[in-house]
Simulated assay, not measured.
Amino acid sequence: MSSKKRIAANKIPGQRKPEKTVGNLGKVLPNSGNSADRICWRFTHVDHDGPWGLAKLSPADMEYLLKKLADVEKQTVREIFNQSADLGKHYEAHSLPNRIAQERLVELQLSDMTRISRLRFKGKERLFGFLVDNVFHVVWWDPEHEIWPSPKKNT
């Protein structure tokens, strides 16, 4: 029996050909069709040793933060930073008002970055990092609004 006939003989009636997955994540991963437009996260530059590192979070706080990140990543960068200043905002990194934050950027070898971005969740909670295209490189979790305090009361 030739190899072509052997392959045809092994085919199960009604069985569909498996769909290719390379470059076609939408077929494998639901709701991933517009992933290039939506914000996503990188954790390479997290400040583990500073006062706003993620390692200091309790398991409950980490679960809360991850749920917030999952909720935010449903949006595009444009929706977050251009249509809602409440959620996303950019600052000039050299203007950081917190001296400790400035020193941490030097220690992390990130002091040459010109713009730092933040996401505001609720009340005082902020996530700081660097936005490159649609990738938010997380640096600090600031639950008490210490990195870039607002001149307004109760914010």
Rank of each mutant, 00 (worst) to 15 (best):
Gly23His: 08
Lys27Arg: 14
Val28Tyr: 09
Val28Asp: 05
Leu29Phe: 13
Ser32Cys: 09
Ser32Thr: 11
Gly33Arg: 15
Gly33Lys: 13
Ser35His: 10
Ser35Gln: 10
Ala36Leu: 09
Asp37Ile: 08
Arg42Met: 10
Val46Gly: 06
Asp49Tyr: 09
Pro51Asn: 04
Trp52Glu: 00
Gly53Phe: 04
Gly53Cys: 04
Leu54His: 02
Pro59Lys: 08
Ala60Ile: 11
Ala60Val: 11
Ala60Asp: 11
Asp61Asn: 14
Met62Ser: 14
Glu63Val: 06
Glu63Cys: 07
Tyr64His: 12
Lys67Ser: 12
Leu69Ser: 05
Ala70His: 15
Glu73Gly: 03
Gln75Glu: 08
Arg78Asn: 15
Arg78Ala: 15
Glu79Gln: 08
Glu79Gly: 01
Ile80Asp: 00
Asn82Met: 10
Asn82Trp: 11
Gln83Tyr: 07
Ala85Leu: 13
His90Gly: 10
His90Pro: 09
Glu92Gln: 13
His94Gln: 13
His94Cys: 12
Ser95Glu: 15
Pro97Ala: 04
Glu103Gln: 14
Glu103Phe: 06
Arg104Ser: 04
Leu105Arg: 02
Val106Met: 08
Leu108Glu: 05
Ser111Gln: 15
Asp112Leu: 10
Arg115Pro: 00
Ser117Met: 00
Arg118Asp: 01
Leu119Thr: 07
Leu119Trp: 07
Leu119Gly: 04
Lys122Gln: 08
Leu127Pro: 05
Phe128Arg: 02
Gly129Met: 03
Val135Glu: 03
His137Ala: 02
Val138Trp: 08
Val138Cys: 00
Val139Pro: 05
Asp142Ala: 02
Asp142Val: 00
